[in-house]
C-alpha cells in the first residue's frame, strides 16, 4: 500500500467576522462587505443569500462592519489575540 504524498487535514478555526443573517441583505444583491475587505476573506453563500467569512485571514480593520448598510456585520478581535 502506498501513501499519498500530500494528505490534508482540515483544522477548525473560530472566525472573527460574524454576520447577522436576519439583517444581511446579500439576497437583495448587496455585496458591500465582500467588496471592501482588503484581504478578500468574505463571500456570499449563494444557497442562503447571506454573507459569510470564507477564509480565516482577518486584519480586524473593520471596513466590512463600518460600510455595511444594515449593521449586519460584527468584527471580533481574533481569538488568538483577544
Amino acid at each position: 500500500m502506498s501513501f499519498p504524498t500530500f494528505s490534508i487535514a482540515e483544522q477548525r478555526s473560530s472566525v472573527p467576522v460574524r454576520i447577522d443573517e436576519e439583517l444581511c441583505i446579500a439576497d437583495k444583491g448587496c455585496t458591500v462587505c465582500v467588496d471592501v475587505c482588503p484581504l478578500d476573506v468574505l463571500a456570499i453563500d449563494l444557497s442562503k443569500g447571506k454573507a459569510f467569512m470564507a477564509f480565516d485571514e482577518c486584519w480586524y480593520c473593520m471596513p466590512c462592519e463600518k460600510d455595511c448598510p444594515t449593521g449586519a456585520v460584527h468584527v471580533d478581535i481574533p481569538y488568538l489575540l483577544r
Binding site: 467588496d35 475587505c37 482588503p38 480593520c61 473593520m62 471596513p63 460600510d67
Partner: peptide, 12 residues
C-alpha cells in the same frame, strides 16, 4: 489587489 475604496495602509 484589493478594492481601491478600502485598500492599503490607510484603509480606515
Amino acid at each position: 489587489k484589493a478594492h481601491v475604496k478600502r485598500s492599503g495602509a490607510i484603509s480606515m
